[in-house]
Amino acid sequence: MAGKTTLNNLPSGSFALVTEVLAEGLIRRRLLDLGLVPGTRVEVVRRSPAGDPTAFNIRGAIIALRKEVAGQVLVSPLGDEAAG
């Protein structure tokens, strides 16, 4: 397993486990409500053609987050074998 990084640094098609949400206040609440609690598996689905935001598969829904927001979610990347 690779070291910790943030959600916005992952390439499209990769998977990761949420380890911590760094955001505070309302953004934090929103992210939690979307299901980004520690232990959640997230798939990076695609990036907007303009480069930002990025769409993630979070608990079965495709949610787009801007990089400033995704950058406040700590994750540990999963290898491909864990993806299936």
Binding site: I58, R59, G60, A61
Partner: peptide, 9 residues
Amino acid sequence: ATCLERNLN
């Protein structure tokens, strides 16, 4: 039904 887990929340 296609996304039950998220909705159960």
